[in-house]
């Protein structure tokens, strides 16, 4: 499945100049950097208004840190090819996320490499406003 986020993000950036749909704000997420997490899914939450990937990431010192990765609306995700059965507990995934400014282990998912190696994007509105630095965490 070809990633189409690049094309659509431009259209959305233009369209979202005057926000139309009342939505909780992504302003809580860092727009200046992204982190890459490699870990094991503990839960794939398939819900509106947004899904979540819960995952455990083993740190360099051997401890396990738990992260919650917020996704977009599962309706938008379905429209770009996502299905609820693409991720399940136990899957080893790699996630690129924009972290919460607060420093809590939570972020806005921008891209996921699934257990089978396929890369899926999240149709985040104005995704181009998030600077990709992809620092491995």
């Amino acid at each position: 499945m070809a990633r189409r986020t690049g094309l659509w993000s431009v259209a959305l950036l233009i369209a979202m100049v005057a926000p139309a749909l009342a939505h909780h704000s992504f302003a809580v997420y860092d727009h200046t950097r992204t982190v890459t997490l490699s870990g094991t899914v503990t839960r794939f939450q398939w819900t509106n208004p947004h899904g979540f990937i819960e995952m455990d990431v083993t740190q360099s010192d051997g401890t396990v840190k738990h992260y919650s990765v917020e996704l977009t609306s599962i309706n938008m995700m379905q429209r770009v090819g996502w299905r609820s059965n693409m991720i399940k507990a136990g899957d080893k995934v790699r996630v690129v996320m924009a972290p919460l400014l607060s420093g809590d282990p939570v972020g806005l998912g921008l891209e996921v490499v699934l257990a089978d190696g396929k890369t899926m994007s999240l149709p985040v509105p104005a995704i181009g406003s998030f600077k990709r630095t992809d620092t491995q965490e």
């Binding site: 139309a20 749909l21 009342a22 939505h23 909780h24 704000s25 302003a27 208004p49 938008m76």
Partner: peptide, 24 residues
């Protein structure tokens, strides 16, 4: 980075005329 809460935070719909923006 500390946005104000709006109706969407409370899972409330737009109502009229907001629903006619049809972003979905």
């Amino acid at each position: 980075g500390q946005p104000l809460a709006n109706n969407a935070v409370a899972c409330l719909p737009d109502g009229m005329p907001g629903m006619m923006t049809a972003v979905f």
